[in-house]
């Protein structure tokens, strides 16, 4: 196992009210897997990803990467956020080279940056500044930047959530191609069922209140996956059914809360 999330809990205490965000979550990730973490908002899927990144600490439980417990952020995990998080004062090349400091000379770093910019098909934009790029292009630069660190696992937190529909569809194709080429291990957080079916080998469905895993579904459909294939529609229905119960539960809870006031 490359990544082992063992019985992780996360609680926040606010005004003496303890809120359980994640409840006994365990996931095992094999090298080269593309796993989607799918769930409604508030199910703690982003918190889980931040924990793997080392940005948030679990209340209890452990996360092991390659046999080592995760304590803090590190270059063995690359992260792509919903906003590109590129640094506006650096041009595209400099952004992609950001993770390198002294471990290699500038020429080598530039070579690497160019390689990964080519991978995301932005070779001609190395000297541009982030504000000159579209949202989709910025996200591709962010992906290239995460790849230059050659991380053991790539963490993506709704990376296409802020893009328009057409751009998002193009980015799905792009990411699928990159993944097939590199076989990088990917943890992909999303709330879109179709996005998770399109991209992943495995879908981990999460429920809310408290955040926990309610299903772990392998996806074996041949690639490229068509959204209108009967198997795709069948799978989408199945996941929709799982999530519907969760959303109904939240609605019921909110209603009873409103009645008791």
């Amino acid at each position: 196992m490359l990544l082992q999330i063992n019985d992780v809990n996360k609680q926040y205490t606010n005004n003496k009210v303890t809120n359980t965000v994640l409840d006994h979550v365990s996931v095992s990730v094999k090298e080269g897997e593309f796993i989607s973490i799918l769930g409604p908002s508030g199910c703690g899927k982003s918190t889980l990803l931040s924990m793997v990144a080392g940005l948030v600490k679990p209340t209890s439980g452990t996360i092991m990467l390659d046999g080592q417990p995760i304590q803090k952020p590190g270059k063995d995990r690359g992260m792509v956020f919903q906003q590109s998080a590129l640094f506006p004062w650096l041009n595209v090349e400099e952004n992609v080279m950001f993770p390198f400091k002294k471990e290699m000379n500038k020429q080598e770093a530039l070579q690497k940056a160019k390689h990964y910019l080519q991978m995301v098909q932005l070779s001609n934009y190395g000297k541009h500044y982030p504000h000159e790029l579209s949202g989709g292009m910025q996200q591709r630069v962010a992906i290239a930047r995460a790849f230059t660190m050659d991380p053991k696992v790539l963490l993506m937190d709704e990376p296409f959530g802020a893009l328009d529909e057409q751009t998002r569809t193009r980015m799905h194709g792009e990411l699928e191609r990159i993944w097939l080429d590199t076989k990088k291990t990917v943890l992909f957080v999303t709330h879109s069922i179709s996005e998770s079916i399109k991209l992943s080998e495995r879908i981990i469905v999460m429920g809310t209140r408290p955040g926990r895993i309610i299903a772990d579904i392998p996806v074996t459909l041949p690639r490229p996956r068509r959204f209108d294939a009967p198997e795709t529609i069948q799978l989408e229905k199945q996941i929709n059914h799982l999530l519907k119960e969760e959303i109904d539960k939240v609605v019921k809870e909110e209603l009873s809360y409103a009645e008791n006031r």
Partner: peptide, 19 residues
């Protein structure tokens, strides 16, 4: 977000402050 991104790229402390 910039600080979180920098942390995931191994930049912290004085290096993060300057860069």
């Amino acid at each position: 977000l910039y600080i979180r991104a920098a942390e995931t790229m191994g930049s912290k402390g004085i290096d993060q402050f300057i860069r």
